[in-house]
Amino acid sequence: MFIRIESSSGVPITRQILDQIRAQCANGALKPGQKLPSVRELARELTVNQNTILKVYERLCAEGLLEKRHGSGTFVAEDAPKGQLKEQQNLLKGEAERLVYRATSLGLSPGELVKMIEEIYQNPTP
């Protein structure tokens, strides 16, 4: 599992890690049943407070994306796909929000942005 922390970013570190694990579950880089590094290992690797990793794992367990198996560690949940689709849509929504923000700051009207997207649908770049 590769996670990259951007410390100068406006996005809190907890959210950066959450988003990247969710994205990796969604795009298949992390597979159902796969074991995640221990809290201590990941904290060490990322040079991040152990409580932060603990919070991330607990939250993703509560969402059903990860599962804790007693005594053996944290794993990607076997029955995650339902949640994954929703997560994928949430991630896309986040990207769309940034896109809209960019378009607004460039002075594009909603109509112009929609037109741009429609053009991309008609002539997709491979």
């Binding site: 410390s7 100068s8 570190i13 990322l46 040079t47 991040v48 407070n49 409580n51 932060t52």
Partner: peptide
Amino acid sequence: LYEIEPIAD
């Protein structure tokens, strides 16, 4: 600060 944030409670 950038090095504090990831590790501080």
